[in-house]
Write a protein that binds this DNA or RNA. Sequence first.
DNA 1: CATGTAAATGTTATATTATTACATAGCGTT
DNA 2: AACGCTATGTAATAATATAACATTTACATG
Lengths: 132, 132
Amino acid sequence: MQKQQTLSRNQKIIFDLIDKSPEPMKAYSILFNVQKKGIKAPLQVYRALDKLIEIGKIHKIESRNAFIACQNSSCQISKATAFSICESCENVSEISNSKLSKYLSNFSDDSGMKYSKYNLEFFGLCKKCKSK
Amino acid sequence: MQKQQTLSRNQKIIFDLIDKSPEPMKAYSILFNVQKKGIKAPLQVYRALDKLIEIGKIHKIESRNAFIACQNSSCQISKATAFSICESCENVSEISNSKLSKYLSNFSDDSGMKYSKYNLEFFGLCKKCKSK
DNA sequence: CATGTAAATGTTATATTATTACATAGCGTT
DNA sequence: AACGCTATGTAATAATATAACATTTACATG
Ligand SMILES: [Zn+2]
Ligand SMILES: [Zn+2]
Ligand SMILES: [Zn+2]
Ligand SMILES: [Zn+2]
């Protein structure tokens, strides 16, 4: 079990919003949505995002500059993330596949580099978009 | 063998610059460096970058918003990229490992999604930085 | 060689994403 | 109370990327 983090006010507002969203949210869309709750500036959003990422409650989809709630009941593995992204409808989901994560976590080559973290993004067409 | 692409003037200027750089280059740093050659606007840079990415001569390091020349003599596999990134010195190199690429290209899960492309970024400490 | 068309270029303005700098507030420990 | 730490507030600005529109170049093919 991992330590339960208590979220601060801004962190909670922003996490709840992202968590309810069916799709990854962009920072300024988050900002727009929380302005009625008193969060007025980009920096307030980015600070909360940074913290939420650090504790594994959300992840950043790098290729989209967007943020998604962790779909693994708060990623034990926030340092080992994998996503599938539909290039047609932009649906994103977190891949939870122990073989894959084991394979990548143990990956090493002859570069002498010690890999402590990875992020993998798969692209393709989701079931729905394929059948169109 | 893949079709030999002829680069246009701007594409060539920008590719040569990136190719000579020992580290990934950012778009506005590229812009700054090619202004003496007559490329004056961001869009000219981004258009060349888009094309170079499309034909596999360069890749974008998503987590860094930076661009690197393909280190696999023009990636047959520009749709299957893997990089190692040192979080201390920011050295980036392209991983060319046929087992890894085979594993990932063939990866599938029960989501019904057909993966046609992936990008993987490993993070850690390079040999040099580890021994400091 | 004229004509069509796709690709590339040039230019200005603007949108989007993210950080710097500085000031203040809350909270637990000593 | 004094300290250290985390979080917050606010303004300004930096960094990354695209939209819109006009023009030019390459080159196939009739
Ligand atoms: Zn997760
Ligand atoms: Zn889809
Ligand atoms: Zn490559
Ligand atoms: Zn290093």
